[in-house]
Design a binder for these strands. Structure first.
Length: 899
RNA sequence: GGGCGCGUAGCUCAGCGGGAGAGCACUACCUUGACACGGUAGGGGUCACAGGUUCGAUCCCUGUCGCGCCCA
């Protein structure tokens, strides 16, 4: 079975993964008696390919799932993808554009066919890539948000909420993306800083020739739709104009000057133009003052005059219908320029100041959104939010880290109606049908709508289905139960809802977590998950966000190709602190690849030394200090690793195992084991050491498996710990009592400190590595001397010693000395070391110990400290004072001997 | 403007009331039969700053400065 010199992930990983998948190792078992453990995958977009953010979130999820599965839980990690309405439609439209086809020419039905075709051909990219990082998803359960079953869930939810009046149609301002020509929700709008101007425009006062009210605006092109000018009621100079009328330049219409606190006297000129149909604040002002709300921009954000045609009039030097008509059909930015030029010509521009402000942009289309007055479907989020808020307040769902609950609350407590209709083709079509007179019927299908129509109208009428589709997040919001078969009452729904933990980034707390909470509670009567674990974002090594435009994007698949999936996964685990972004570059992954290699080489060493699995090995029967010591240390590692995972401290879990594997098992245990494994060692000791080495290596493989599934499974197989591919289902280790652990710890601790002390002195005194010396112990107790004798082989190897024995005579000339507990360690190095340097070194050691002792003494002299500090703290300080004082004395004596 | 988070060794971060830590990087030595993707040892920090609470503060409180993010 000889292990290769190095671990070759590219060859081994696919084979292992296929083996697991074929064997059904990832499968949940609804018939099992085990306690379920459920994680719903945040469904990646079907258009997606694996990026570092995915690598982070899926590594964390897989680590948790594999761990719980090993603990014997019936783990369900539910896979699937999201149809991603806008994103997918854009991908297919681009493909069509390459064929010089517009989707409108193709027609809705044909277009949707094309999307499905695209999905069949290219939609599997992300799921293939998930396999590359080792994600143990239960693939036969894979779902897609547009599957029949999930679509049925969507219709069921829509119809139910409609009947409960929690979904309704409303005509109000909506965020309109003129590029994609669809409404979008508040969340899909991102404010971007834009350098522009603030135009101060003069609106003539009606009946007061030569008098103007000056309004400041960032959007002169919307002035055609102005229906008022607002000033603050308490404005010192402008308030007198309230109740008068202004003449809207260019249009010629008279508009009222109204009092409204929305006009901030400190900002701009103190007067603002009110365009209710094209600004959210103005819309509210318009409602308060019952103003007309003409739209002057169409769905492509071009000027349209249809609603103001009748208002146009010619006023010399102020308004010119011909000019206004020339704007019809012009793009909003072209119109802005033209209007400013015309107003300047009319001397109606007072000033133009440079102005930087936040402009809302569509997150997908990337162009400024246009508030537009349209009829859309809305969901009454405020009502649904209440129980969701309550669930988090009462702790039925807990956020980790907890501070994200504040973010959740802040948004949920001020939640706005959720615009759920989209003017797209790819998505869940809204199950609403209209009679010729506009009456709307909401039903599961057309037959249901017809039935309702017959009941209302008597004779059959022709119904047309709503053209719009639902916001993608509407179906994602049902994911925790729609994937389980709901609305059917499947065993899965009963068993795997609610889920245990949702793992995701903070960027979709609003988009997704909040919606799942609202809809899950409403339809299932219970929260969709007990814990929401929020991790950070992946950034590049310098902490910058990865973006294509910056060119700092790292491809996780390339990292996997170069370093292996285990190295990438362990790196992610090690760097994922709570509430911290993960700064990750190839260099880091390379660093942690060394750990994978280290593990591999430790296993090779074991193999070469005939370390074999001993099936009947019992830690409780370990007799040697060395084996008891490493078994005890393993128990500590098991406890720490388990506690870390329970607390979602993936970084601590990784650090604990890194330390235990490398520093404890490799650096000390295997080194100490070498004498016992060497030829000529006592047979019984050799057997116990071998069996223990195998046992603890097995523990390490089990403990590391959740984060490094491939290399651990490979070694598990090669060593024959179990059948091929069985580690994934092997039980998670639990601590097992070790006889006399404290004594073993004390013994090994001393040996480690002795070797460390000797090594330190040798290096500091520049003793050549090849030089060996006896180690002489002065003032050592008989117990110490016996201990040294027991470990003579290890001490020889690790401390470059020829022998260890008591020193009863005078100090040999040219010796180096160090203090270890009650003893002084003496290394006779005549002719090798510089005695003057040794004197300096010992002096420094003594001063250091003396400084510590003095610190302790000073503390203990403080009566307040002795009186008020806890007893054990005072006792500890006394003890340390004693130890330091003894050390100072011994060092001083050592110094004395050479002077 | 409101809120959240962060400022600890050159870098990345852990610790968060009683002895300043890890990994990487660095320096020196070591090609010793698992591993140079290695071993051993070492240097390096007024724990952002200023107050306060406390017997005691990197840790708790207040303020200041700097950085990042979210919301308006």
């Amino acid at each position: 079975m000889t292990l290769d010199k190095t671990f070759a992930p590219t060859e081994i990983e696919p084979r292992l993964y296929e083996g697991w998948e074929a064997a059904g190792s990832f499968a949940a078992d609804p018939t099992s008696n085990a306690q379920p453990f459920t994680i719903m995958i945040p469904p990646p977009n079907v258009t997606g390919s694996l990026h570092m953010g995915h690598a982070l979130t899926f590594t964390v999820q897989d680590t948790l799932v594999r761990w719980r599965r090993m603990q014997g839980r019936d783990a369900l990690w539910q896979p699937g993808t999201d149809h991603a309405g806008i994103a997918t439609q854009m991908v297919v439209e681009r493909l069509l554009a390459a064929e010089k086809v517009d989707r409108r020419d193709l027609g809705r039905e044909k277009f949707i066919e094309r999307v499905w075709q695209w999905k069949a051909e290219s939609g599997g990219t992300i799921t293939r890539q998930l396999r590359r990082i080792g994600a143990s998803l239960d693939w036969p359960r894979e779902r897609f948000t547009m599957d029949d079953g999930l679509s049925e869930a969507v219709r069921q939810v829509f119809v139910t909420l409609y009947r409960q009046k929690l979904i309704y149609r409303d005509r109000r301002l909506v965020n309109w993306d003129p590029k994609l020509q669809t409404a979008i929700s508040d969340l899909e709008v991102e404010n971007r800083e834009v350098k522009s101007h603030l135009w101060h425009l003069r609106y003539p006062i009606l009946g007061e020739p030569g008098q103007f009210i000056v309004v400041a605006t960032t959007r002169p092109e919307t002035m055609l739709g102005d229906t008022a000018v607002a000033v603050h009621p308490d404005h010192p100079t402008l308030a007198r104009l309230i109740g008068k009328q202004a003449i809207l330049p260019l249009v010629g219409r008279a508009i009222p000057i109204v009092a409204d606190t929305y006009a901030d006297p400190e900002k701009g000129t103190g007067a603002v133009k009110i365009t209710p149909a094209h600004d959210f604040n103005d819309f509210e002002v318009g409602r308060r003052h019952d103003l007309p709300m003409p739209s002057v921009l169409d769905r492509q954000a071009r000027i349209t005059l249809a609603e103001i045609e009748g208002d146009l009039m010619a006023i010399d030097g102020v308004a010119d219908p011909e000019f206004v008509r020339s704007l019809d059909g012009q793009d909003r930015f072209a119109a802005r320029k033209a209007i400013v030029v015309e107003l300047e010509r009319l001397e109606l521009v007072e000033t133009i100041e440079p102005h930087t402000h936040q402009v809302p942009h569509g997150d997908r289309g990337g162009v400024p959104v246009e508030p537009l007055l349209t009829t859309q479907w809305y969901c009454d989020a405020a009502t649904l939010a209440k129980p969701a808020i309550e669930a988090v307040e009462s702790g039925r769902t807990v956020f980790v880290p907890k501070q994200w609950e504040n973010t959740f609350f802040a948004w949920m407590r001020d939640i706005q109606p959720w615009c759920i209709s989209r003017q797209l083709w790819w998505g869940h079509r809204i199950p609403a049908w209209y009679a010729p007179d506009g009456t709307v019927f909401v039903a599961h299908d057309e037959a249901g709508a017809l039935e309702q129509a017959r009941a209302q109208f008597g004779p059959d009428v022709v119904l047309t289905q709503d053209e719009d589709v639902l916001d993608t997040w509407f179906s994602s919001g049902l994911w925790p139960f729609s994937t389980l078969g709901w609305p059917k009452q499947t065993p899965e729904v009963a068993r795997y809802y609610p889920g245990d933990v949702l793992v995701t980034g903070f960027d979709i707390i609003f988009f997704w977590v909040a919606r799942m909470m609202m809809l899950g509670i409403h339809f299932m009567g219970e929260v969709p998950f007990r814990t929401v674990y929020i991790h950070g974002l992946v950034r590049d090594e310098r902490g910058q966000k990865m973006s294509k435009s910056k060119g700092n994007v790292i491809d996780p698949l390339e990292l996997i190709d170069t370093y292996g999936a285990d190295a990438l996964r362990f790196t992610i685990c090690a760097l994922t602190g709570p509430g911290r972004d993960v700064k990750l570059g190839a260099a880091r992954v390379q660093d942690y690849r060394s750990f994978v290699t280290k593990l591999w080489n430790a296993a090779r060493f074991a193999e070469m030394n005939d370390v074999r699995v001993a099936p009947d090995f019992d830690p409780a029967k370990a007799s040697l200090p060395l084996t008891r010591w490493i078994l005890d240390a393993a128990n500590t590692a098991i406890a720490e690793a388990t506690a870390a995972l329970e607390a979602y401290r993936i970084d601590e879990y990784a650090a604990t195992l890194y330390r235990f594997t490398w520093n404890t098992y490799c650096d000390w245990f295997l080194e100490f084991a070498k004498p016992a494994l060497a030829p000529g060692a006592p047979v019984e000791a050799t057997a116990e050491v071998r069996a223990t080495a195998a046992h603890v290596l097995g523990l390490i493989l089990r403990l590391l498996h959740p984060s490094m599934p491939f290399v651990t499974e490979e070694l598990w197989d090669r060593f024959g710990y179990g059948p091929t591919g069985s580690l994934i289902r092997t039980s998670w280790p639990v601590a097992e009592a070790v006889p006399d652990a404290a004594a073993a710890r004390e013994e090994l601790d001393w040996v480690v400190r002795l070797i460390g002390t000797v090594r330190s002195v040798r290096t500091e005194m520049n003793v050549p590595a090849g030089t060996t010396t006896p180690i002489l112990l002065r003032d050592a107790t008989p117990a110490t001397l016996e201990r040294a004798e027991r470990w003579i082989e290890a001490i020889r190897r690790l401390a470059r010693a020829t022998a260890v024995r008591a020193l009863t005579d005078a100090l040999p000339p040219g010796s180096a000395q160090a203090v270890l507990d009650e003893a002084t360690v003496v290394l006779p190095l005549a002719g090798v070391i510089d005695l003057a340097a040794e004197r300096v070194r010992l002096g420094k050691e003594r001063d250091k110990a003396a400084a510590e002792a003095q610190k302790m003494a000073k503390k203990l002299e403080n009566a307040d400290f002795v009186r008020r500090a806890p007893e054990e703290v005072v006792a500890e300080n006394r003890e340390r004072l004693g130890a330091f004082e003894a050390e100072v004395a011994r060092l001083a004596a050592a110094l004395q001997r050479i002077t």
